[in-house]
Simulated scan of single mutants.
Amino acid sequence: MTAPSLPHNDTVFVLTVTYNAPLKCVDELLQAHRDWLDSHFSSGLFLASGPRVPRTGGVILARAADRADVEALILTDPFVLGGVAYYDIVQFHPTRGPFAEPLVTGATVEQA
């Protein structure tokens, strides 16, 4: 299955989320954050996500047309709106390895 097509180029973004509040406060917003993630998985923007180990934040892989789109998007995360986390953004062009093409095209691993 291929993700829905969104405007993008060959750029992938690694978004690292860092909690800046106690986990109790983070947990109060966790379901809203997960719903936010799911909406962006459905749109094809997000490719993978999960918590960091130890639980100090999370990581999201995303595709977007440009960095400004990603910067605007993360401002809508309930974690950011609630003041419990902040993001760092790393932009890169996958060119090597078995996941490089699927990351760029949005194809699933089975299709690659």
Rank of each mutant, 00 (worst) to 15 (best):
M1S: 12
M1D: 08
A3H: 02
A3S: 04
P4M: 04
S5L: 04
P7R: 05
D10K: 05
V12Q: 04
V12W: 00
V14L: 13
L15E: 01
L15T: 07
T16K: 05
V17D: 04
V17G: 06
T18S: 15
A21Q: 10
P22S: 15
K24V: 15
K24D: 15
C25G: 08
C25R: 12
V26Y: 04
E28R: 10
E28C: 04
E28Q: 14
L29F: 09
L29K: 05
L30Y: 15
Q31K: 13
Q31I: 15
A32D: 15
H33F: 14
H33S: 11
R34L: 15
W36V: 11
L37R: 00
D38T: 09
S39I: 04
H40K: 06
S43F: 01
G44R: 02
G44F: 03
G44T: 05
L45N: 08
F46D: 08
L47P: 01
G50N: 11
R52E: 04
P54Y: 04
P54G: 07
R55G: 07
T56E: 13
G57A: 11
G57W: 10
G58T: 09
V59Q: 02
V59F: 06
V59L: 13
V59S: 07
I60Q: 11
A64E: 03
A64V: 01
A64G: 13
A68H: 08
D69L: 07
E71P: 02
E71Y: 01
E71M: 09
A72I: 02
L73A: 09
I74G: 02
L75Y: 00
T76I: 05
P78K: 08
F79S: 08
F79N: 09
F79A: 10
L81H: 08
L81W: 05
G82H: 06
A85G: 11
Y86T: 12
Y87Q: 05
T95G: 12
T95I: 11
R96Y: 12
R96Q: 12
R96S: 13
F99V: 05
E101F: 01
L103C: 03
V104P: 01
A107R: 04
Q111H: 04
Q111C: 01
